[in-house]
Design a protein around this nucleic acid. Structure first.
Lengths: 131, 131
DNA sequence: TTAATAATAGTAACGATTACTATATTTAAA
DNA sequence: TTTAAATATAGTAATCGTTACTATTATTAA
């Protein structure tokens, strides 16, 4: 049923995403992966990032602060977006998945997923008074 | 200090946003406001929605599902986005603002705000089996 | 091998949004 | 009330992130 064919470009994209933890944009992945595949096309990067997201192998992060980012870590966790340097950081915090049950209390549709983002100034920008 | 000048277009935009609860996009506001101001420009709508958001008079909603939406209700509440009909609905749920404190537990930057979105199929789409 | 199918590179097109510019409106002061 | 400075506008062009198109190439199962 899976009419999916192997492609080295797709593997390279996923591999690279697993090797970095800065939640890169499609363009950041493209820039870096060109060192290995000098004539990979930007469309290929976009297409495969979208495909891998649909397959659940990676996660698309919508930050509201610039282009979408991608994360190879699909385990449940939340992110912080710095409004100064635009970094996207993993939050180290306790599980808050009960907000889904709390949301379902008075809701009559089907909640399939949710996303939580925190915004502000990251430690680095705050210390170096770039804020 | 406020070099802000009155404009009827801006007032009309805010007024319309207060009168509807469908969290319209800029284009939806534009389409409707043209009935009153037939030659208002789309740029004016975008500019004023951005300005009002910065002033905190309205709220910009980043859904990850199409263009940004706007909400005249600035009180703390969360939204649901239907992946079928793309409606943005207000969630009627208990306060979950303690997630901010929970996030601050191990975080060393400054958290200024956060956003929570729920995704799935709304009651209407679920009942009419459009899902 | 071959043949069917999916994936690619390269490029064009798209939608949402912002930038530009000449004109119009607002506002405070004369 | 004019006037003059500053802000806002309408209309349009440009930008950015992303998707669509198409001819060619790679994968895969028979």
């Amino acid at each position: 049923m899976s009419n999916l064919k192997y492609s080295r470009q797709r593997e390279a994209i996923k591999k690279q995403l697993m090797q970095r933890n800065d939640h890169p944009t499609a363009d950041m992945v493209y820039t870096d992966i060109r060192k290995e595949y000098p004539n990979i096309s930007l469309g290929t990067v976009y297409r495969n990032l979208a495909l891998l997201s649909e397959l659940g192998e990676i996660k698309r992060l919508v930050t509201g602060d610039g282009p979408d980012r991608f994360d190879a870590d699909t385990s449940p966790h939340n992110h912080f977006i710095c409004r100064k340097c635009h970094a996207v950081l993993d939050m180290d915090m306790e599980d808050i998945s009960e907000i889904k049950e709390r949301a379902e209390q008075n809701f009559h549709g089907v909640i399939e997923s949710y996303s939580v983002n925190f915004y502000g100034i990251c430690e680095h920008c705050h210390q170096t008074k770039l804020s």
